[in-house]
Computed example of a mutant assay.
Amino acid sequence: MQNLINRRQLIKGITAGTILSQLGSLPALASNERRLFVDGLCFLPDDLADLSSSKIDAYLCDISAIEAIKQPDGTTNYKRTYKACIKSIAEANSRVEANKDKLILGLNSSDIKRAKQTDRTAVFFQIQGADCVEESIDNNLNQVDEFHAKGLRALQLTHHYGNQFSGGALDNDASGGLNLPLTKAGEALIHKLNQSNILVDVSHSSPQAALDTARTSNSPIVQSHGAVRAIVNHARCSPDEVIKAIADTGGLFGVFMMSFWLTNDKVPTTDHYINHLKHVAKVAGIDAVAIANDYPLRGQKNLLKLNNNNAEGVKQYLDWWHSLREKNVLGYDVEPVHVVIPELNHIDRMERIDLALGKAGFTSNDRDKIMGQNWQRVLNEVLV
């Protein structure tokens, strides 16, 4: 743990100030200048006009494609296979290339500043699950190099369920355990990602796998999108020890928009979202707090069609939810009654969060960090 603490002290003492100033940090905001907005997870929009409307300068952009895999217990896992993701990253590259007036392929943190200065959006390609790395470890994980050459800059170890690299948040073995570790193959993959300057993302990992990853990685790691288990006791939410371990690597924790993992109250509000940000700041420090989405830029599509009627919108999740309740997975015994925070399921989400942070007592400097500078700092350190 000592090496993690030293790395965190380095980040807090040097990176947040000196490194950002040396490597393209933004100057102090003028009174009429909007602060930097960076999002932890979103997608390429159907309508590229959403890029400018959202006012987001950069984001981790999930470009992965999935195959639905039936589990032996009857539940469904969605795997990002090599074949599907090689095709999807090529398609995403083509779309960025065809729309250079609106998009920048994010390869390092300087692309964030370039995007803001030119009124474009930098997208940093991410894949939600390392199933796309299908080759054996003996083959030196060359598929990682292939994805990197095509623009991949962040890789999530797993999605919900475990794979050859990592235990998943929703894994459930015969004893009802939910805490399967990082594997030897996972350790090798993390070393390869560090060497390749690809950001390691422990979203959807089990708590033990996330802790193992924090100890293994020589670079900052992130949970790009998640929530706090101390507030909602659910397998998809992270314990405090995980949040702190991520921060101790110099990384960050992004809080997302899925309201059934933000509160068990019947009516979700922006205050519920802010409470998760406050908790991360309390446990891990302000340099570890970030914003994420996990819905399209404009918001969760079905709920928008329903005018954010949560009572109707939640129905699309119930079959999946009940299947995991039958497996006795932590938190699925509580029936969800909402999907989104209506005020934040909106194209102006980032501005509304920023204003809510001000009302909640966060300083202007804290808001700068939460809304974008923490992401800029981490990407600057990893994507060299």
Rank of each mutant, 00 (worst) to 15 (best):
K278E: 11
I291P: 05
I286C: 04
K301N: 08
A290N: 02
K278H: 01
A290W: 01
L297Q: 02
I291K: 05
A288N: 02
V283K: 10
G285I: 07
N310Q: 04
Y317C: 09
H279W: 00
V280C: 10
K282A: 06
A288H: 01
F256I: 04
N264C: 12
F256V: 03
R298C: 12
Q300C: 08
V280G: 04
L304H: 09
V283E: 09
G285R: 06
M257A: 09
L304I: 14
V283P: 00
K278I: 03
G313N: 00
W261K: 14
A311D: 12
N293K: 11
L277G: 10
G299N: 05
H279Q: 14
F256Q: 11
N293W: 04
N293V: 07
L304C: 02
Q300T: 02
Y317S: 14
I291D: 04
A292P: 03
V289I: 02
K282S: 11
A311I: 05
N302A: 13
R298L: 12
T269N: 13
T270D: 12
L262W: 08
F256E: 13
N309I: 00
H272L: 07
N302C: 06
T269F: 09
T263Q: 11
N307A: 13
M257T: 11
H276E: 12
N308H: 09
K301C: 06
D271E: 15
V280S: 04
A288T: 02
K282Q: 12
H276S: 13
N302M: 09
K305P: 02
Q316S: 15
V289P: 05
L262T: 08
W261Y: 15
V283I: 12
V280F: 05
M257D: 11
A292Q: 01
L306K: 07
D287M: 05
F260P: 15
E312Q: 12
V280K: 02
Y273N: 01
N302I: 02
H279A: 03
H279E: 10
N302P: 00
P268E: 06
G285E: 10
T269I: 11
N310A: 04
A290E: 07
D287S: 14
K301W: 10
R298I: 14
L297E: 08
L318S: 03
E312A: 10
D319E: 15
N309S: 06
I274Y: 02
H272I: 03
D265N: 15
G285A: 06
I286M: 10
K278L: 08
P268I: 10
P268W: 01
V314F: 00
G313D: 00
H272Y: 05
D271N: 15
D319V: 06
S259F: 07
H276T: 09
L304E: 04
A290S: 13
Y295F: 13
K266W: 03
N308M: 08
V283R: 10
T269Q: 13
L303M: 15
D319F: 05
K301Y: 11
S259E: 07
A290R: 02
L304F: 03
S259R: 09
L304A: 07
K282G: 03
V289L: 01
D319I: 03
N275D: 14
D271G: 12
N293D: 11
N264E: 15
N310K: 08
N308D: 14
I286A: 03
D271A: 15
